[in-house]
Amino acid sequence: MQAITLGPEGTYSHRAARAVADEVTFTESVTDIVATVASGEVDRGVVPIENSIEGSVTESLDALAEHDVAVVLEIVTPIRHALLAQNEGFERVASHAQALAQCRTYLEANYPDVTQEAVASTARGVQMARDDPTVAGIGHPDNGGDGLQVLAEDIQDRTSNATRFVVVAPADERSDAGGKSSFVVYPSANYPGLLLELLEPFADRDINLSRVESRPSGERLGDYVFHIDVQAGLYEQRTQDALADIEALAEEGWVRRLGSYDTRHVLY
């Protein structure tokens, strides 16, 4: 099976993708990953969806709202950040914006005068550090070697740092089986009590909501798309009944069932 994920080789996304595919190709855009899977060009895409420190990856949420794909698996992996450079004389730290944010306290305490540069992925920053002695990267400590020193390990602000990835597949592979389900809801409306009305069908049926997040729809100011994760499968009657209520509320908009799936914990 082939998967596409954020590259270049050595990203945390690459590590997650190896848990589901023998052949992994790369791009530097989450939107490209989801669009490529939606077109049927590859079997699977692996995208980061949420970090325990910095929260949701908004580009991933927007891509899932824009393209019709299925979520078939959730991968949760701990994140271990290391500072990698050719020597201590670096002037810039380059990494993904989320990685920089996750190591904010360490960088401010130890390198307050060093410039921080957000790049497409942690692996891209590591490659820059390998090519340029004035640049340090942030990435997994296994990326050291070949002239690149691990100057410090476990520099993330919290030891509990973990990232949740979702594995996306073409829409026709959507499943009703699994312990969790995800939906995207666009009610095309805005009035007092709307969000409460969207959540009550789940509460009334004792369905636990594990995440609710709004993103701008792009249609007009103050208009939102809602991303909802629940700890219940689409195969369950209570979930079907709740969604029927949601679809009635969103009759002027739409509801996308991303599917039901299980969680896999991957340790590195």
Rank of each mutant, 00 (worst) to 15 (best):
Y106V: 08
H81A: 12
H81R: 11
L84D: 12
P78H: 10
E74A: 11
D113Q: 11
T122F: 15
E108Q: 13
A97S: 08
D68N: 14
V72Y: 03
A70S: 04
V114L: 08
D68W: 15
A85M: 05
R92I: 01
E108N: 12
L107V: 05
Q102H: 09
A85K: 00
A120I: 02
A85D: 00
E91M: 13
E74D: 06
H81I: 05
Q116T: 02
A123F: 00
T105P: 05
S95Y: 10
V72L: 08
V114E: 05
A109V: 07
V69F: 04
A120W: 07
A109N: 07
V119R: 00
L73E: 12
Q102Y: 13
D113G: 14
A118E: 08
A97M: 05
D113V: 05
L107I: 08
L84H: 03
A85I: 02
G89A: 02
Y106A: 10
D68F: 07
F90H: 01
R80A: 08
Q102K: 15
Q116H: 12
P78W: 13
V126F: 14
M128G: 03
L73T: 11
F90D: 01
M128R: 14
F90R: 00
P78D: 07
L73K: 06
A123C: 07
L100K: 11
A109L: 09
V93W: 07
L83C: 04
A82Q: 08
P112Y: 12
Q127C: 10
R104N: 10
R124C: 12
V72P: 01
H96L: 07
T115E: 15
V71E: 02
A101V: 06
E108A: 14
V126N: 02
V119W: 00
M128T: 04
H81K: 06
V114N: 08
V71K: 02
D131A: 15
F90V: 00
I79W: 15
A109P: 05
N110Y: 06
S121A: 00
V119L: 13
R80G: 05
D113N: 13
Q98K: 09
V71Q: 08
V126L: 02
A94M: 11
V69I: 09
V114T: 09
G125E: 01
V76Q: 13
A99M: 12
G89S: 12
A118Q: 09
V71H: 06
A70R: 02
A118Y: 02
Q127T: 07
E91A: 14
G125K: 00
F90I: 05
R104W: 14
E91H: 11
A99C: 14
R80Y: 09
R124Y: 15
S121F: 01
R92Y: 05
Q116C: 01
A129W: 00
Q98V: 09
R92M: 06
E91S: 06
A129V: 12
T77D: 08
Q86V: 03
Y106G: 11
V76T: 14
A129T: 03
L73M: 11
A123Y: 03
E108I: 02
Q86P: 03
A94F: 06
D68Q: 11
A99K: 02
L107N: 14
C103R: 13
D132W: 08
P78S: 12
L84C: 07
P78Y: 15
R130L: 01
A82F: 15
D131Y: 06
E117N: 12
V114D: 11
T77P: 14
T77N: 09
N87M: 13
Q86M: 11
E117H: 06
L73D: 10
A97R: 12
N110A: 14
